[in-house]
Design a protein around this nucleic acid. Structure first.
Lengths: 201, 201
DNA sequence: GGTTTATTTGAAACGCGTAATGAAAAATTC
DNA sequence: GAATTTTTCATTACGCGTTTCAAATAAACC
């Protein structure tokens, strides 16, 4: 079997090693200095390559930032789980989880920006990430809590209710973050209001 | 009265004329070519000045984009009002308005991006705009519809419910726009679900 | 009219994300 | 070992938003 002349493509191991390195450096910069500090020039210096080399491995900056989503969503989920730990009934759990979710994003604006505002609306580079099931991470807990609260509900109903709740909470967090000068009602009032229709359904 | 030597400051009329010109050109570019086409270089060429001159008149690009919000919000409101025109009962009006609101933003991603995703989270340049009461434009209609549906409710309760509804709808629109590859429930399902708790409260 | 002064405007530059294209590297072929 | 080939990497450049600071402008003063 004669192979074609030419430089061989990167091996799977090389690809993984490079992506892992980029991801770790990106997260390191992000954790130390925040969202704005994660620039391609900065990141490439840390990785030890030219900025444009990153584009040979990733479709764009958005794809790199998506590598950071998993960590952030895990942290948010840990925060929510911590807040519901001492709750004994399902309604209290849901209320505490809802409140914890929104206040997490309010108190971590860089995280919010990373996950919800860096994907350039209209560009579907996020599709592969989503199809890998990553959207559920950090959000599935609400589906579980709702199922525990309403064990007899049909799966499709649980999906609609939990996904509407998540979208609604994201909207509240967006408003708190983006239009922070507005006198929004208190977070607990808004989250309780959101939850009212979800629980009563 | 001896005035100090030196070039006189711009008059109020000059200030207004320039800002109006910038606003009109920005809107013209936006309408013709979309969000991405509204760049400072492009805009300054159209206005007939250097890009940096824009910064002597506006705090930054965000402030210019905010000038466009009013038109977009008016259009969105007209769309919603059109959809509720033939509704005869308040619950149907609310359902139709909620659905129209979310689908408007879903179907106008550039408008969504302009209003909700161009203000650079964490930077409070939007405060002056907000304090001028502009956030209410396009959103007050939900307060009115809710008041009509529930005339006996306390004002503070109407505020919480309507503002939570608006935030929730924005969240749904954000998810549809940003995470468009995810299999969200249908818009009507989600808006009905959002509305369930708002109406029942 | 020339000088001084205060304000406005714009040239030059910076780092940003990214595209186009040439140089470098690593393999096979002869 | 030189030539060819294919892939990888990096240089150069572009338009982006924005800052710094010099040039230009328009007024009062002498």
């Amino acid at each position: 079997m004669t192979k074609a002349a030419g430089r061989p493509p990167r091996s799977d191991a090389e690809i993984l090693e490079f992506r892992t390195r980029v991801s770790e450096h990106a997260m390191s910069i992000y954790r130390a200095e925040g969202f704005e500090a994660v620039s391609m020039r900065r990141l490439s210096k840390r990785v030890g390559c030219a900025p444009t080399t990153l584009y040979a491995h990733f479709a764009g900056k958005t794809e790199i930032l998506m590598l950071l989503w998993a960590d952030v969503l895990s942290e948010m989920e840990a925060h929510v789980r911590d807040k519901i730990q001492d709750k004994t009934n399902t309604a209290d759990s849901l209320a505490a989880a809802t409140y914890a979710f929104v206040t997490y994003w309010r108190d971590h604006p860089d995280d919010f920006r990373l996950v919800f505002m860096s994907s350039n609306v209209g560009k579907t580079d996020v599709d592969s990430f989503i199809k890998a099931g990553n959207v559920d991470r950090g959000f599935a807990i609400f589906k579980d809590l709702l199922r525990a609260h309403d064990p007899g509900a049909v799966d499709a109903d649980i999906d609609i209710r939990s996904e509407t709740l998540v979208a609604g909470m994201i909207g509240v967090a967006l408003c708190l973050n983006t239009i922070s000068g507005y006198a929004w009602p208190s977070v607990s009032r808004m989250t309780d209001q959101l939850l009212a229709g979800i629980i009563a359904s």
